[in-house]
């Protein structure tokens, strides 16, 4: 499917979806974090979309908001799209997990949890993966400060 067809197809679920294609090669959809789990299920299990391959999960710190970017691909049809989920709550940031839909998300979400402090609800094993036990702060956030280990030029 081309990006336009994808957009049409997905827009039928909810006409309020906001798509962008600016400054990126992918069709990008931004969804509210409450809707994300259901949309993820639809994206994967709708036969004509069939996004079965989640090839990249990126945590983002936009300064005010935190977000996660999901890069999706259908190995059958070859079409790709990007879904962005944002949350403005920096203290108790949480987003629904999709690790039961795409198992690969399990590790990626644990990594993001370590480095960005975004909690993924219903994740089977939301424990520290990369950082040592009891690490203070979330290193990849923009406001993270570590005068000992970080050299800023």
């Amino acid at each position: 499917m081309t990006n336009a067809e994808l957009q049409n197809s997905i827009s039928t679920w909810n006409p309020e979806f906001t798509f962008t294609e600016e400054a990126t090669e992918f069709l990008t959809l931004t969804v509210a974090k409450e809707d994300w789990y259901k949309i993820a299920q639809k994206l994967k299990f709708t036969p004509e979309l069939d996004f079965d391959y989640l090839f990249c999960v990126t945590g983002m710190d936009y300064g005010t908001d935190l977000g996660v970017i999901y890069h999706l691909r259908s190995t059958k049809f070859g079409h790709e799209m990007v879904v962005k989920v944002n949350t403005s709550d920096r203290e108790n940031a949480n987003i629904d997990t999709v690790s039961d839909i795409w198992r690969t998300a399990e590790f990626h979400e644990r990594e993001i949890h370590d480095l960005f402090g975004i909690y993924f609800n219903n994740h089977p094993n939301m424990q520290v993966l990369i950082l040592p036990e009891g690490w203070e702060g979330y290193p990849l956030r923009k406001d993270y400060d570590d005068p000992v280990n970080m050299i800023i030029r």
Binding site: F55, C56, T58, G59, M60, D61, H71, R103, T104, E106, F107, H108, E111
Partner: peptide, 13 residues
């Protein structure tokens, strides 16, 4: 922001 989607990370999972 730079993200490296490394093959080993997913292969390990």
């Amino acid at each position: 922001r730079v993200k490296f989607r490394s093959p080993g990370f997913s292969n390990l999972s």
